[in-house]
Design a protein around this nucleic acid. Sequence first.
DNA 1: TAAAATAAGAACTAAATTAGAACAATATAT
DNA 2: ATATATTGTTCTAATTTAGTTCTTATTTTA
Lengths: 218, 218
Amino acid sequence: MLTPKQYKLLQYINKTIKETGCCPSFDEMKQAVGLKSKSGIHALIEALVERNFLRRLPHKARSLEVVRLPKLKPSSIVEEEKKRDQALLDAMVEIPLYGKIAAGIPIEAVANEIEKFAVPYETVRGGQFYALTVEGDSMIDMGILDGDTVVIKKSQSANNGDIVVALVDDCEATLKQIKRDGQDVLLIPKNDAYETRRLPAARVKVQGILSSLYRKYQ
Amino acid sequence: MLTPKQYKLLQYINKTIKETGCCPSFDEMKQAVGLKSKSGIHALIEALVERNFLRRLPHKARSLEVVRLPKLKPSSIVEEEKKRDQALLDAMVEIPLYGKIAAGIPIEAVANEIEKFAVPYETVRGGQFYALTVEGDSMIDMGILDGDTVVIKKSQSANNGDIVVALVDDCEATLKQIKRDGQDVLLIPKNDAYETRRLPAARVKVQGILSSLYRKYQ
DNA sequence: TAAAATAAGAACTAAATTAGAACAATATAT
DNA sequence: ATATATTGTTCTAATTTAGTTCTTATTTTA
């Protein structure tokens, strides 16, 4: 069994040769495994040759060849890879940022994808999501400010009281709290300066539900 | 394995034989790899023969044969791995989540690290950051709500008007807008139900500046 | 606790790269 | 077959790059 350092170096040598066709120099190796002196590399290579993982021509530069690779990974390496996998799992994914949506007077429809917005993968698992930049102050009393980025989960339906992206008459998209009132739908701004709109349910389509909010200062 | 020069020459020889059916001369090779003398080619070929990548008949012109080539990983796979590495680079980093901070009456000091909070790496580059969970409603008029997570950039100083984590008398930490007024410091809540505190500058230490805000709905 | 392994750095040795020139062997044209 | 051209070999020498060996410490592992 190899020590973690030996394993790491062997993997690096193997990877480099496979990718470039050339053997790395001791200096390159010391960079790769994070050493400041090449005498350590020399010792590691001695050990790998002794254990028959490497073959070399003594005193020849860049003459290493990988004889075989270990079947077992040192347990500390396994730990490291677990952490890396976790990091990958937590990595960002990009969702479309469709542009501005009115939190005041409706401005533009959700239509042409312009940019991407990166969010943690776990926050957008199990659904389709997109992002919008809030414009206006009609939701200010819910702490949704002009310039905030909201992440919306696509949905054709919403519960009473949800904050949704609502498409009115197939042309205006707006972020409002939604409530049902008989055959009508109420689109409720959260700012006393704005008035609730009452519309027949047929004119309003829910496009998604507010899922999270991001704000960057300065 | 090979040095970069050896590799380059071997590739050229192989390519030429494959394309023209005949081995290049030393002069052609020296052109191809950018040398001005063929003695260098001779040395490289010696090395390639020694490493068993070439075979030759001594003193016979254009008599080289390629024995083997370093087998490279397909470049598509290399690309994929590069992308994966990039994903890792773009991944989340975890910053300490120190617990709750009062946005109303000060509750607990910034002290014992409890949890971690994952944020996109790029948002916390160039500085030390930590996260706090907002408790209370004193900043509600700035859209900072109870339960929001705020990311704070460590700093001992702040500009007038910044929203900061302020430590009062070395024991209460609170999130407020800060303003200077002569020898005093004003800690301004953003909620009409709360009153601005005026304190001598000596009693207030800035611990960090509000950098970003995260809110999860439902 | 003893034996490996890890680590740094310096001093040293050796190999690789490069050039130029002279020369030797081979190939080709006449 | 011979002259000529082409090609490969050998040498010197300078420079750069690379590998080895040594000492000294620290850390890890058995």
